[in-house]
Amino acid sequence: MSSVRVCTRKDGSVYTQVLFREFDPAKGRRVQASVSFDDHKAALSWQKILDQVGPEKARAMLAAEETVQGEKTVTLNDSWAETYISGLTGVEQATRNRYRRYMANDIGPAMGDLPLPALCAATADQNTVVQEWVNEMEADGVAPKTIANKHGFLSGCLRAAVKRHLLPFNPCEDTKLPKRRRECVFLEPEEFDIVYEAAPAKWRPLTLFLVTTGARYSEATALRVGDIARNVDHEGNEFWTCRIAKAWKYTGTSDYKLGGPKTQRGYRTINIPKETVDALRLAGRNKDQLLFRTRNDKRIIPQQFHNLCWKPTMDQVAGRIGKRPRPHDLRHTCASWMLNNGAEITDVSAHLGHESIKTTVDVYGHLDRRSGHRASTAISRALVRTAVQKG
């Protein structure tokens, strides 16, 4: 551990030395070293960094900070992160609270006291502080999605700092994030039949609705009876639609509130199969009543569906179908059924309410083999003129 010593020069000025030991390659051993500061507060701040990251990284960060001439020292902890969080627009209060928890529990302890320019300094292995923070979370077994969420917040925070000329560049932009290890699980229609028949009867309508609409759980359980509508086309054919314009939102407490869907394109009207409508038994129901509800006319929370329906059903059938999907995999299954039965990927994107077609392609593009078939057919035509075909 380092120590601090206040000293006086011959001219009477006072300065602060931070004393520590570091490895000297020339001598092959650790030796006493020091760094002096005219500002006592700056010395204490650097001492804290030194004890946290070690002499080599601390010196590199100090050098990076000194390249930003005349810039006031700003850290994530003392002001910038809160300034950024407070200034965000178009976000729920629960989101602000989550960001503050990221700062208090994850980012603050790791790099919150470092001057912002120091976050751009490269370490001996050419990593930034941000990359090493990500690596440490991965080594501790933090889920890739959780790492991506925390890194995404930090990246937005530092991007704003760049715009304010507090940073030369955003060190998050080149960070390599761990890949998500959880693969989507797709059920074949016959496999879903097994799941459906094993599910408790009272939960079957919700299970069928999730797989045939691809709605997110938070969207499906926010629907009212009146959101399901009977329609007739110009030829007199009956069809049914569902208007999705609400979803349950986490508030940071045990309470949830109704808000909009996850994305702007999440506001959508989708067609639903008559078989699904029949299972809902809408006749005689109040239009303002929750479509899926408890006996007390309350929303069905995810834990209820998981504990009372999904887990016991999976315990019963996982061995038979050779898979153990999550409830969210019903949404993936819906997409796979659409693609395997002639729907275009743009149709799937609109149906699921993805903000971007890129999301749909990235997740489900491998299921649509029509483009692959066209490619292989074109290659076959070319081979007709080669020695391969001629024998």
Rank of each mutant, 00 (worst) to 15 (best):
M1D: 03
M1N: 09
V6M: 10
C7L: 15
K10S: 14
G12N: 14
G12D: 04
S13D: 02
R21D: 12
F23S: 06
D24W: 05
K27W: 00
R29C: 08
R30Y: 14
Q32F: 09
A33E: 00
S36M: 08
A42E: 14
S45L: 14
W46P: 04
K48H: 13
V53F: 11
P55A: 09
L62W: 10
E66A: 15
L76F: 05
D78V: 10
E82R: 14
L88V: 00
T89D: 12
G90N: 10
G90H: 09
E92Y: 04
E92M: 07
Q93W: 01
R96S: 12
N97W: 00
R101Q: 14
M103G: 04
A104V: 03
G108N: 15
G108H: 14
G108T: 11
P109Y: 11
P109F: 06
G112I: 02
L114C: 15
P115T: 03
C120A: 15
T123V: 00
A124K: 15
D125E: 13
Q126M: 07
N127W: 00
W133K: 09
V134K: 09
N135G: 14
E136L: 12
E138K: 14
A139E: 05
V142R: 15
A143N: 03
T146E: 07
T146L: 09
K150G: 03
F153C: 01
S155D: 02
G156Y: 04
A161V: 09
K163H: 12
F169A: 09
C172G: 04
T175I: 02
L187N: 04
L187P: 06
P189R: 14
P189M: 10
I194Q: 04
I194S: 05
V195L: 15
L208K: 15
L208H: 14
T212V: 04
A215F: 01
T221Q: 09
R230D: 06
N231D: 02
E238S: 07
T241Y: 06
R243I: 03
A245I: 07
Y250Q: 09
K257M: 03
G259W: 05
G259Y: 00
Q264S: 13
G266C: 08
T269H: 08
N271C: 12
K274L: 02
T276P: 07
D278H: 05
A279Y: 04
A279N: 02
A279R: 11
R281C: 13
R281Y: 06
L282V: 03
L282W: 08
A283Y: 10
G284Y: 08
Q289A: 15
D297L: 10
D297I: 02
R299W: 11
R299F: 08
H306V: 04
L308Y: 13
C309L: 05
T313I: 05
P327Y: 07
H328D: 06
R331T: 01
T333C: 01
N340F: 00
N340M: 13
A343I: 12
I345F: 01
D347P: 00
S349W: 03
H351P: 00
S356C: 08
L367H: 07
R369C: 05
S371Y: 00
G372T: 12
H373T: 06
R374L: 12
R385P: 00
